[in-house]
Amino acid sequence: MQDDITGWSQWNQKFSEIAELSSPSELHGLLTGIVCVTEAPTQEQWSLILSTLNVPTLDHDALQLLTEEAEDTAHALSEDDLDYIPMLPDDKNTLQDRVFGLADWCAGVVLGFGLASGHIRADERELIGHLQDVAAVEFEDSDDDEDGEESYQELYEFVRLIPTSLAVGRKRQPVLDSSLLKNIHERITEVDSDTDANIVNVFSPNRPS
């Protein structure tokens, strides 16, 4: 797995300073979990989604990268051709960093899927449980050996296919129809309605009969 193939270097550079998330890998997991359920969010929708997680506003380039990656990920998951690749530290990084990156990614998928779907179906619980197990994985110095490398590769190959399984058979919802931004959308609609009413009142004064 090379940085220039996965885009990890650029992804890490753009998103490594987000203190509200454990790592850029968690952000990619969040993105993945969301597009298992919804259409790929627009830049404006990403700004709203991240605001619900108290993530500071991202610059235009970061939002564009996030939006493009969501579109690519949604396409990869819909193809069901097993080509989906999580955005994780590659082999140039230590085994510990890769293990924790994988754990963060799993946590992100669980969070994104839960936020977007609003509930977990019975047939999805086992898959989500596997992700939660890996998200809680621990790493000790004694794990940093050849057996540890093999265990990591097995875990990686196992969990990277879970989003495909979660996405199969689902008809993706528009973002605003999902639970992801439903409350925000309803509040915006209420504000817009109040604003329209005020405008009508201003330009339609009561006239004596």
Rank of each mutant, 00 (worst) to 15 (best):
P86A: 04
P86Y: 04
P89W: 11
D90P: 11
D90K: 10
D91Q: 15
N93I: 00
T94A: 12
R98G: 00
L102A: 05
L102V: 02
A103K: 01
D104I: 04
G108F: 01
V110G: 04
G112E: 05
G114W: 10
G114P: 14
L115Q: 12
A116I: 10
S117M: 06
S117G: 09
S117K: 15
I120E: 05
I120R: 03
R121P: 00
D123W: 00
D123Q: 07
E126N: 12
L127N: 09
L127A: 09
H130Q: 12
H130A: 08
L131K: 03
D133H: 10
V134L: 14
A135P: 01
A136D: 15
E138V: 12
D141Y: 08
D144S: 14
D144Q: 12
D147V: 14
G148I: 02
E149V: 13
E149I: 13
E150T: 12
E157S: 11
V159S: 05
R160K: 15
R160Q: 15
L161S: 14
I162W: 07
I162C: 08
P163F: 02
P163M: 02
P163A: 01
L166V: 05
A167E: 09
G169T: 03
G169F: 02
R170L: 06
R170M: 05
V175I: 08
L176I: 08
L176S: 10
D177Y: 04
D177R: 11
L180G: 13
L180T: 14
K182S: 14
